[in-house]
Write a protein that binds this DNA or RNA. Sequence first.
DNA 1: CGCCTGTGTAGAAGACTGTCAATGTAAGCA
DNA 2: TGCTTACATTGACAGTCTTCTACACAGGCG
Lengths: 107, 107
Amino acid sequence: MPLAAEPIGVDQAGEVAIAFKALSDPVRVRLLSLIASHPGGEAYVNNLIAAFDLTGPTISHHLRVLREAGLIGCQRRGTWVYYWVVPTMLERLSEVLSIPAGSRATD
Amino acid sequence: MPLAAEPIGVDQAGEVAIAFKALSDPVRVRLLSLIASHPGGEAYVNNLIAAFDLTGPTISHHLRVLREAGLIGCQRRGTWVYYWVVPTMLERLSEVLSIPAGSRATD
DNA sequence: CGCCTGTGTAGAAGACTGTCAATGTAAGCA
DNA sequence: TGCTTACATTGACAGTCTTCTACACAGGCG
């Protein structure tokens, strides 16, 4: 349900805000984009760490925030840990921000 | 350009993160929804304050954050100040989160 | 002019966040 | 078993955020 269609409920506003908070850091936005745009839809941590001027623990922390927000999933395969995006969550957020047709007013 | 289409640039990630940070608080999500879904697309501050268990200055602060993020605009008309949403900004964020067709992988 | 209402600003307290160094855990290999 | 690599957790520090109280500004009205 788009945010602009009707006043959002308190509970749903809280859930949505948690997801947006996970996206409120440039590093996490880039991480999500790197994972989502990776060939095959997956990426492993070592590649992600190499893309930033940050230490491993910091990237690990950001990945955890994204995971706890339900935006990405992960799985260990042998030594490496693979991450992938959860498309349904992104789509839900995208819909929340969409503008319903015919609801535009003074701009 | 959707976030999942290709790795997002550092600059754009920063801009997008600022907008998402503005949406990372439940109060601001509800404020934006109240303004966007208001008949006529506008709302004035007194009504917004009445919808929360928060003081006027706190609502004023949140409105400023939304305004500085480019998500809403405002104008004084006599004694009252009216707020409205900026649809282009919401649409841009919605597009960033959208999933390009055919890019879904292991879920 | 002076008063009241509506709205924003300033400053401060407390909680939260991003980052790091140090340490811990898990898997592969000799 | 012991060593090495890959990744996560812990604890700490500096900075930021949310919220409040107190105050200031702007506009209408007597």
